[in-house]
Write a protein that binds this DNA or RNA. Structure first.
Length: 994
RNA sequence: CGCGGAGUAGCUCAAUGGCAGCAGCACUCGACCGAUAAUCGAGCGACGGAAGGUUCGAUUCCUCCCUCCGCGACCA
């Protein structure tokens, strides 16, 4: 049966047709899809779909709810989303509850600035309300931005560290530390403004030019000098120190020297002075000693624990060793508070003596080393900056005014070797612009080394690694440090592995945790002071009571209510039985807040549980959240709150430099979203190895966009050729597929396996590279290019075409699934455009995000893959010859070519088998394979197969564009080749073009 | 300065104690004009941050140096 008139050849070619647009228009399309997901309540649907599956809990570290998100925040959230989505598609039930860190100084500072002078007269509750509003605003904006990135989660009910429940839990957890005996009250130096009479945070300090007296002061050695060196026996030995804050001298308790430096003793008349060798000349010159003789030299380490007498007081000053001592005067400057400046300067003045005046109550390094040596944190200066009554000679003096008097006093006593005015940058109060001091004030600490009062052994509720701590049941109560080290080494998996070293190092060195902050925007430390005996009361049961109030009223209650209203009825001081109390004014360090999340969140949301399977943050969190969370986990449950800790690197610019808004090299995620779409940021996150620093620049994003377009086009080609394909009706059994189609599916299986494994291992860049390579090389350049002919020219319903479509269908489906965690929007778009079987057994889920990854059947035909690897190698060689022919103008299109292969023995046999297919594989019109016998003595070609290219014979077929000598044989279709004539007949039988 | 990390082609990544990759992109040239603001091909491109050492042989193991990054600061 033939139709009346011959068909128009052009119309019988099956060109791709799809509603999947070539141009993504992501910036516009993404919001539309987000709306759709919202309409579906996709996150809820996913939860339903995975109900009852094994849980995977990624616990979200809360970003700080202050400013808008930046690329680093975006990276963090996107990588988390990769984890959540890939675990979901691997079959886990992986809920995602996002959170926000809402308390803390940056917000309070922001509010301070906004309120200006008004703040001074405002009650704390009002300031806190303003802070709460600011955090609420910020977290709303962040939420919007995170959602815009395609991150699915429980956005309607995130956890906020300022919620009443969270604040109550934070207080309860502090109570837990108290209960176990980890909490104590001590002193610690902080920036202090003597005019505003308040503690200042580092961020509230600014550096300005300031003139201080620079003094060189002699401290007489009390120990036997011959202990240092026999040459010193009987000499009057002094340690020479330098300082620019003479007022801290009354608080001097030690002199620090560097154990690794060489020290020298220089002679000045009857006296000799100990100074660092390298500085001896400079010091001598400064102090006007001419060409002093050096009496002895020795390493600083020899001086450990010698005793000096204070320059004028009847008190010892211990010689101690500290690596912080330098030759540039910086360590001294630390005491003087301008260490930051000193460090920033590339050139530091050669001031100092190598013997550092140490006052643990007035300097940070001094405090740290003082603790090591068990020195008092001595601070005889009151809140107004006056010496207390215990300071001889200067009691009641204001410290800045006392400077000059102390210098004079030193001079009179003969303890001063030299003094001058010294200009340097010195910290000032950002508000009143006056110079500040470092002053030790009382603070609450959590001890790292105290043994706990009780050992709480509990069972892991899901019992996964209960054996990990059954051993501990008999253990004696341990310190936080010991417990932390045990967990870090034994029960946490660190990715990358060096995280363990990093964490261990940090834990070994970290000092006690100072949890006090002299601020109002945070969770108040629920402690009281007895008005009768001044006893500080931090009591577990009292704290529980207070937490109950917080639970109802938020911690604003602390400021809104009197102490009596916060205490349990009838509470009396355990020491003096008085019943009047004042409230603690310090709040908790925000790290305590966020550290509490393992309990406050994981045990609060029904879908979560303690411990989390994973914490995933930037490397900065080793000292931050990983650390504070670990402490809380130990206090609450004697174990780490995480099973695995995964860290990512920092975002840097194209040169590998850190990004700073001020440096102008930062990339704003919102700009990229507006220009290219969130998908491009996501793809960038997947494209490079996030374990290290991630570079981002125009060029890099351009590359990523290119890659995106390539993958999109690859998917589009597959979809375009599936028009009218019904997998249930038209699908071909695997065994019936053409060999090359089976090869493509075998390659897909290989890729599927690799990608699944990469997702399992959180190696997202491997996912990206594997899929990208698959799209560009395996599919676009090879498979698609080859099957194009068949798809376009074979009869629409022919077995040959259906075979290719069956493969394409499976490829498109797998690609959508495998891509889904990364390209959340595009994968879903692909998914929608995949034709679904009318008679399919199960309906495809409404979104790819409800689906699971494809699985691999198991029996992959490796032999098939090897054969095709060989064929493609052959193809490479042919392509090179084709290119040569093209350059010589023998051919233009490869279809204008005829290829002759001359091969020996086994090669011949192999190629001969494929002779019919080779023209398609090479995309030429004709291929012949012939055998040649190598004769000994003949010129031996190093290549076993010789390739020759010539112009194809015959005419170009109008329909399929290949050349054939048989074009013209058909009267009905005189411009078509024999293959097309056959296809046309089939089309006509079926009633016209598809 | 301490602790930790990194340094393979312009970019993003591989592999391996043995000639550095069937790399992809970019770039150059070319083909095609039936994936078309596409597609295909060819070419170009790293002496492995520098220097030592172990080894028959190292990019891969060790030492040291340089550069960059993070933490030490209430930034992911």
């Amino acid at each position: 049966m033939t139709t009346e008139t011959p068909l128009e050849l052009k119309k019988t070619v099956n060109l791709p047709k799809t509603s999947f647009a070539q141009k993504a228009n992501l910036a516009q399309a993404e919001p539309v899809r987000l709306k759709k997901w919202e309409g579906l309540n996709l996150y809820r649907m996913i939860r339903e779909a995975r109900r009852g599956r094994e849980k995977f809990i990624l616990h979200d570290g809360p970003p700080y709810a202050n400013a808008d998100i930046h690329l680093g925040t975006a990276l963090n959230k996107i990588v988390k989303d990769f984890v959540i989505k890939s675990r979901t598609m691997l079959g886990y039930d992986a809920p995602y509850v996002p959170g926000y860190d809402c308390h803390g100084l940056p917000i309070e500072l922001f509010v301070d600035k906004k309120l200006g002078a008004k703040k001074a007269n405002m009650p704390a509750v009002s300031v806190r309300r303003a802070c709460r509003e600011h955090a609420t605003e910020a977290l709303k904006r962040q939420t919007r931005d995170f959602q815009r990135l395609g991150i699915l989660g429980l956005w309607e009910n995130p956890y906020l560290t300022m919620s009443n429940q969270y604040e109550a839990d934070t207080a309860r957890l502090f109570g837990r530390f108290v209960e176990r005996g980890y909490v104590y009250k001590g002193a610690r130096p902080v920036y202090w403004c003597v005019y505003d009479q308040t503690a200042l945070a580092e961020a509230e300090v600014e550096y300005r030019e300031h003139t201080s007296p620079s003094v060189y002061v002699k401290f007489p050695l009390a120990s036997d000098p011959s202990e240092i060196d026999p040459a010193l026996a009987g000499r009057k030995v002094f340690f020479l120190i330098w300082t620019t804050t003479p007022w801290t001298l009354p608080a001097n308790l030690a002199i620090a020297v560097n154990p690794n430096f060489e020290y020298a003793v220089i002679e000045n008349g009857a006296e000799v002075y100990v100074v660092a060798s390298e500085l001896a000349g400079a010091v001598a010159e400064k102090c006007g000693l001419d060409a002093p003789r050096i009496v002895a030299r020795f390493p600083g380490a020899k001086l450990d624990r010698l005793e000096c007498r204070h320059a004028w007081l009847e008190r010892r000053s211990l010689v101690i060793l500290g690596e912080h001592v330098t030759l540039g005067g910086e360590a001294d400057a630390e005491t003087e508070l301008d260490v930051r400046e000193a460090r920033d300067k590339s050139v530091t003045g050669k001031a100092g003596t190598g013997c550092v005046h140490t006052a643990p109550g007035h300097g940070h390094d001094d405090f740290v080393i003082g603790k090591q040596y068990g020195l008092d944190i001595y601070c005889p200066v009151d809140h107004a900056g006056r010496f207390t009554s215990e300071v001889e000679h200067f009691a009641g003096e204001r410290v800045f005014e006392a400077n000059a008097k102390i210098v004079e006093f030193l001079r009179e006593r003969g303890a001063l070797l030299f003094s001058e005015n010294y200009n340097h940058r010195y910290p000032h109060c950002w508000r009143c612009k006056n110079p500040v001091i470092f002053r030790a004030t009382p603070q609450w600490f959590i001890s790292l080394d105290a043994r706990s009062a009780e050992a709480a052994v509990e069972q892991d509720e899901d019992g996964r690694d209960i054996t990990n701590y059954t051993d501990n049941e008999t253990d004696a109560p341990e310190s936080l440090r010991a417990g932390a080290l045990r967990e870090v080494e034994q029960s946490v998996r660190w990715i990358p592995a060096w995280g363990e070293d990093r964490m261990r190092n940090m834990l070994k060195n970290r000092p006690d945790w100072c949890v006090s902050r002299q601020r109002v925007w945070g969770v108040p430390i629920p402690a009281f002071y007895c008005k009768g005996c001044n006893e500080a009361i931090a009591d577990a049961s009292v704290i529980k009571h207070v937490a109950g109030i917080f639970e109802r009223e938020t911690s604003d209650a602390w400021y809104a209510r009197e102490a009596q209203e916060l205490l349990p009825a009838g509470f009396a001081c355990p020491k003096c039985s008085a019943t009047a109390f004042t409230k603690e004014t310090d709040i908790l360090d925000v790290w305590f807040d966020s550290g509490s999340s393992s309990v406050a969140v994981l045990e609060h949301y029904e879908e979560l549980h303690f411990p989390a399977d994973m914490y995933l943050e930037g490397g900065d969190q080793y000292r931050g959240w990983f650390n504070s969370s670990l402490m809380v986990g130990l206090a609450a449950h004697d174990r780490a709150p995480y099973r695995t800790v995964l860290t990512h690197g920092w975002v840097v610019d194209g040169q590998g430099k850190a990004m700073h808004k001020s440096a102008g090299n930062s990339v704003s995620p919102n700009d990229v979203i507006k220009g290219s779409g969130a998908e491009i940021i996501r793809l960038w996150c997947a494209s490079s190895d996030y374990h290290e620093d991630m570079r981002c620049s125009e060029e890099i994003l351009q590359r990523v966009s290119d890659a995106y377009r390539k993958m999109r086009n690859t998917a589009r080609f597959a979809l375009g050729n599936l028009d009218g394909f019904d997998p249930a009706r038209d699908g071909v059994e695997t065994g019936e597929l053409l060999e090359i189609d089976r090869w493509a599916l075998a390659e897909l299986d290989t890729v599927t396996e690799r990608v699944r494994a990469a997702y399992e291992a959180y190696e997202f860049h491997t996912v990206y590279h594997t899929l990208y390579h698959f799209c560009t090389v395996t599919l676009s350049a090879r498979y698609f290019d080859i099957i194009k002919d068949r798809l376009y020219t074979a009869a629409p319903r022919s077995a040959a075409r259906r075979s290719a479509q069956t493969a394409l269908h499976r490829i498109a489906d797998a690609l959508a699934r495998l891509l889904a965690p990364v390209l959340v929007f595009t994968a879903d778009e692909i998914w929608e455009n995949i034709p679904r079987g009318t008679g399919g057994t199960e309906a495809a889920p409404a979104s790819v995000h409800l689906a699971e990854f494809p699985t691999v059947s198991g029996e992959r035909d490796e032999e098939l893959q090897e054969r095709w690897t060989r064929l493609f190698e052959m193809r490479e060689g042919v392509l090179i010859k084709l290119e040569a022919a093209r350059n010589q103008k023998v051919i233009g299109s490869s279809l204008e070519a005829r290829v002759s292969l001359v091969a020996t023995g086994e090669h011949y046999k192999f190629l001969k088998e494929y002779e019919e297919q080779l023209r398609y594989i090479f995309i030429v019109s004709q291929v012949s394979v012939s055998e040649v016998h190598t004769t000994s003595g003949a010129v031996k070609s190093p290549i076993a197969v010789t390739v020759m290219v010539e112009r194809a014979g015959g005419e170009k077929c109008e329909r399929c564009w290949s050349y054939s000598v048989r074009v013209g044989e058909s009267a009905r279709y005189p411009t078509a080749c024999e293959r097309c004539v056959e296809a046309l007949a089939e089309i006509e039988r079926e009633g016209g073009a598809a």
